[in-house]
Amino acid sequence: MSCDEEALTEYLDGELSPERGAAVEVHLKSCAACAKTLERLKAASAAFKKHAAVRSPAGLGRETRGRELSAVLTAVIVTVVVVLTVGKMFKPQISGIFNQVMGMISGAASTVGSGN
């Protein structure tokens, strides 16, 4: 097997078939340059894992679920307002009920806003 640098990365990651892996191992025994490259790749891999880990910020998942629930509640509120507005246009006698419900929705919306 001739020198194939990228095959060394595949070998390091266990991505080679058993046959190709065996061929790389044979090659490494007789090629100092490839053996050196493999050591460099191993060192880089180890250094990345040791020094460059990402620490997740707190609250990431909770905020996602909060946004989803707020979106659902907003959709419900908008739907109710549209239905009552249309109803009010064609049936003036329900305007009293409309004003009562709007008051309830305003109260619920400010509760959701303070809860996020």
Partner: peptide
């Protein structure tokens, strides 16, 4: 993917050296 990993690791190796 293979090429990117190979290139990235060589860059890190160079920085370490």
């Amino acid at each position: 993917v293979k090429s990117r990993l190979h290139r990235a690791r060589l860059a890190l190796a160079k920085a370490l050296e």
